[in-house]
């Protein structure tokens, strides 16, 4: 049985979950972009005219967007079991933040789909 204090601690931390995920996605995408450029993954095409560089970025972006959606859904599922008013407020705030983070990831990372990745 989790006591109320540690449950609130988890809830408080979940406020940062959405944008925490955004930050992790930023670091991973940026790092893998640079790794891909260093190894020349942008040259040539593997499948459907897409380079290995584009494919790995699309795959990573897809994974992170799926995690974002899972987070939003997960926070909703737990919402019904809320009891105290504080808990309800924290849950809905965390969920709204997670939705905002999903929108932020789509907005900031869609460049990975369309932009030139490496210096030609």
């Amino acid at each position: 049985m989790i006591d109320a204090t540690s449950r609130r601690t988890v809830l408080l931390l979940s406020l940062a979950a959405g944008f925490g995920l955004w930050a992790v996605a930023f670091v991973v995408l940026y790092a893998m972009l640079s790794v891909g450029c260093a190894f020349g993954w942008d040259r040539g095409s593997l499948v459907l005219g897409l380079s290995l560089q584009r494919l790995q970025l699309l795959l990573l972006l897809g994974i992170f967007l799926a995690l974002h959606v899972a987070l939003v859904v997960g926070l909703k599922a737990r919402q019904s079991r809320a009891d105290a008013a504080t808990d309800r407020f924290l849950r809905s705030a965390a969920r709204l933040a997670a939705i905002a983070a999903l929108a932020a990831s789509v907005f900031t990372y869609f460049g990975a789909v369309v932009l030139t990745t490496c210096n030609p």
Partner: peptide, 19 residues
């Protein structure tokens, strides 16, 4: 912000030294 980002992306593509 969307307008600024779109403009910056388009300009960024123009700064690339293409063959």
């Amino acid at each position: 912000l969307a307008a600024l980002v779109a403009g910056a992306f388009a300009l960024g593509e123009r700064l690339l030294p293409r063959q």
